[in-house]
Design a protein around this nucleic acid. Structure first.
Length: 483
DNA sequence: TTTTGAGTTGTTCGA
DNA sequence: GTCGAACAACTCAAA
């Protein structure tokens, strides 16, 4: 027996672009052999669709950050393009690796199972770890062993389960192979937009990568958490964690968030509870996704297959561009376009407007958000769109139609949020900031607004739209009873 | 098995 | 201006 060096291990990064609390990385290092970190740009979309444009921007910067961090620990990151099985087999051949370590990404379990089988045929083992969620999916069961379809009991059961696992500290060193495999250049992937550079303002708000995630978390706990319960509903106030995009790319784990909010003063308990509850929603959406892998395409409630959606291309475009004539809706859609982000409260308002005022199929909106949001998450995005549509789990009652004027007045009372994102309304009196169409002519003139020219008239009368939506939802119910 | 209470985020109407 | 009720009925989860 000789004290041979164990074979190299491949660490395949996917939507887990971090070194901290990374079980797969930890296990790869534990083998005692060299570790070969790789990110693969796969040609085919996963079952949940390809990465959106905004997320490609994010991915570019996150990979840059990850590569820098890996290099600081003595290794490097290999970038390759191709079918995962082929790339991994090549790498194994080049490095002598026999095992590929991954963290499970539940939205692509089906593909990963196939990849594992294909690798197995090439005598390469795929070993998977948990970490993406607070608790591994399937841990949280109803009394009769089923999966929860309502959030509150899910949350209650999760709390009874106790704390999520302890996070694993980032390694201090990653052993590199003697001959490092060749890598493509990140720039050759052309992930960044150029013509035009619609992501120009993204970096005003976002610093992709683990370090950016840590800074956001510290700022949240230090400055914003104390106002979370009240402030998180007010889009003009920075009271939310702004961690969604970091979570979506796996740059920080929910377990890390949970434990970072553990040893806080008792006065923080209520806000911590609300924050953790939101984090738990992510777990809940993934449990829905694991039951229905095409949550982005199939109505959770199949009754909605019969819904009579309308579609008008010009109306859809007006919505995407923030030209609906309803200030809070337009502010949200423009924030989305400019920053790759939209405040959660406004997501509901804009989604409700598309679905219920325009009667456009929620899937159209889901796809738009997926392409435009830096934090687009396959489970959360689909789950929340279905929730607004009423087709989802724990769906809102059909008669809940958001009134864009009332929502604006309630959650953006001074119009600060509208003024920021719809600058042509900036000078409008507070009284009319959410309903310029009701403002007297001299008020509009004083604010330099000419409705229909500098800012659109409402594209649809909300009262009419509301009645139309309620009628359609009623017909749907009637049809279900007959069927 | 049956029963019971509850279900993220709302709006409108009439008193 | 404020407040409670109505807006449907159904499914879920636990007792």
């Amino acid at each position: 027996m000789t004290a041979e060096q164990p074979p190299a291990a491949i660490l395949w990064f996917r939507r887990d672009l971090r070194l901290d609390d990374n079980a797969a990385l930890h296990a790869a290092i534990e083998t005692g052999g060299a570790v070969v970190p790789v990110y693969i740009r796969e040609p085919e979309g996963h079952n949940i669709g390809p990465l959106g444009g905004a997320q490609e921007w994010w991915l570019h910067h996150s990979l840059e950050a990850l590569r820098k961090a890996v290099r600081e620990l003595g290794s490097d990151l290999v970038l390759r393009t191709g079918a995962a099985v082929d790339v991994l087999a090549d790498l194994a051949h080049e490095t002598g690796a026999q095992t590929v370590f991954i963290n499970r990404a539940y939205e692509r379990d089906e593909q990963d199972r196939k990849i594992a089988a294909d690798l197995d045929a090439k005598e390469l083992r795929l070993t998977a770890f948990h970490g993406k969620l607070l608790h591994p999916p399937g841990r949280i069961k109803t009394g009769s062993g089923g999966s929860f379809k309502v959030f509150t009991p899910f949350w209650n059961a999760m709390q009874k389960l106790g704390e999520p696992r302890e996070p694993i500290a980032a390694p201090t060193r990653i052993p590199a192979p003697k001959h490092f495999p060749k890598s493509q250049s990140l720039n050759s992937w052309a992930l960044l937009p150029s013509k035009p550079d619609w992501a120009a303002h993204f970096s005003d708000l976002w610093t992709p990568g683990e370090q950016g995630a840590k800074e956001k978390l510290e700022a949240f706990i230090g400055n914003h958490l104390h106002d979370y319960k009240r402030g998180r509903d007010l889009p003009a106030i920075d009271a939310t964690s702004n961690l969604s995009a970091h979570l979506a790319h796996g740059e920080i784990t929910p377990a890390r968030l949970w434990h970072a909010t553990r040893d806080l003063p008792r006065s923080a308990a209520e806000n911590v509870g609300h924050f953790r509850r939101e984090v738990a929603w992510r777990d809940f959406c993934y449990s829905l996704l694991s039951e229905k892998p095409r949550l982005d395409e199939e109505n959770w409630d199949r009754k909605f297959d019969a819904m009579e959606w309308l579609y008008d291309a010009d109306e859809f475009t007006a919505w995407t561009r923030g030209q609906t004539g309803y200030p809070i809706v337009d502010a949200g859609m423009r924030q989305l376009w400019k920053y790759g982000f939209m405040h959660n409260r406004v997501r509901m308002i804009t989604a409700s407007f598309l679905i219920k005022d325009l009667m456009i199929d929620w899937r159209k909106g889901e796809k738009w958000f997926r392409d435009a949001l830096v934090d687009a998450d396959p489970a959360n995005n689909a789950g929340n769109w279905q929730w607004v549509a009423g087709s989802g789990a724990d769906a809102s009652p059909f008669f809940r139609v958001f009134n864009p004027v009332l929502q604006g007045e309630k959650f953006d009372p001074d119009g600060t949020y509208v003024r920021e994102h719809v600058p042509e309304l900036a000078k409008l009196d507070k009284k009319y900031i959410h309903k310029p169409f009701d403002a007297p002519p001299q008020t509009l003139a004083k604010a330099g607004i000419e409705l229909g020219t500098t800012y659109p008239k409402p594209m649809i009368d909300h009262g009419f739209a509301r009645d139309r939506a309620l009628a359609a939802y009623k017909r749907l119910r009637g049809a279900a009873e007959e069927g």
